[in-house]
C-alpha cells in the first residue's frame, strides 16, 4: 500500500499563553516581554522557538516550549503592569498536531473550508476542521493544527482518516 498523504503527530511539548490587550498601544510592551515581533493581521511571527500568532485584533497566542510558559506568563503580567490586559497560561487547553509531508495540504483541504492553498507563508488561519474549531499555521515541511484538548481524539481521527494512503486530491 502506498504511503499516507502526511505524517500526523500529536505535539506534546507546546506551551501556550493567551494574551489579550490593545495591540496598538501595548504591542511594543508585548514584543519586548516575549522576544517576538508583533505579527501582522492573520499572521504568525517567529523568533527561535517562540511564535506569536495573531488571533484577533486584541488577542495573541504565544506558542513556546512548555517549560517556559509559567515564567513567560509572569513576565508578561509584570510588563503589562496596571495596563488593561490579560495573560493566561493555557498550555493544557489544546491538542496540537503536526501534519508533515508533500501532501499535507490535501489532508487539510478535506477538513477545512478555508482557502489554505492561498494562505501566505507566515499566515495564521482560524477556521474549522469538520465540526470543531481549529487554528492552522505552517511549519518546516508541513502545518501545525491546534484545537481544543477535549476533542483531541476526534481531531486525530479526522486527520488520520484524511491522510489515508491513495487519497491524494490530484486529478485522476
Amino acid at each position: 500500500m502506498a504511503e499516507a498523504l502526511a505524517r500526523i503527530t500529536q505535539l506534546q511539548d507546546l506551551g501556550m499563553i493567551q494574551i489579550r490587550a490593545d495591540l496598538a498601544a501595548l504591542g511594543d510592551v508585548i514584543a519586548k516581554a516575549v522576544g517576538v515581533a508583533i505579527p501582522a493581521q492573520t499572521s504568525v511571527s517567529t523568533n527561535g522557538n517562540r511564535s506569536l500568532c495573531w488571533m484577533s485584533h486584541d488577542e495573541l497566542l504565544l506558542v513556546l516550549p512548555k517549560p517556559e510558559a509559567v515564567a513567560a506568563t509572569a513576565a508578561l503580567t509584570d510588563a503589562f503592569g496596571s495596563s488593561h490586559s490579560l495573560a493566561l497560561d493555557v498550555s493544557d487547553m489544546r491538542a496540537a498536531f503536526s501534519i508533515d509531508g508533500a501532501k499535507a495540504l490535501h489532508v487539510l483541504q478535506k477538513l477545512c473550508p478555508a482557502d489554505l492553498a492561498s494562505m501566505p507563508q507566515d499566515g495564521m488561519r482560524r477556521t474549522r476542521a469538520a465540526q470543531v474549531a481549529c487554528g492552522i499555521w505552517r511549519r518546516e515541511g508541513g502545518y501545525v493544527l491546534i484545537g481544543f484538548r477535549s476533542v483531541g481524539d476526534y481531531l486525530r481521527g479526522l486527520l488520520q482518516g484524511a491522510a489515508r494512503p491513495g487519497t491524494q486530491l490530484d486529478p485522476r
Binding site: 469538520a130 465540526q131 470543531v132 481524539d153 476526534y154 481521527g157 482518516g161
Partner: peptide
C-alpha cells in the same frame, strides 16, 4: 463523508 461511527460527532472527553 467522515461523519460516521467514531467521528459522527466530536466527542468531548475530560482528562
Amino acid at each position: 463523508a467522515e461523519a460516521r461511527g467514531e467521528l459522527f460527532q466530536p466527542l468531548r472527553k475530560t482528562p
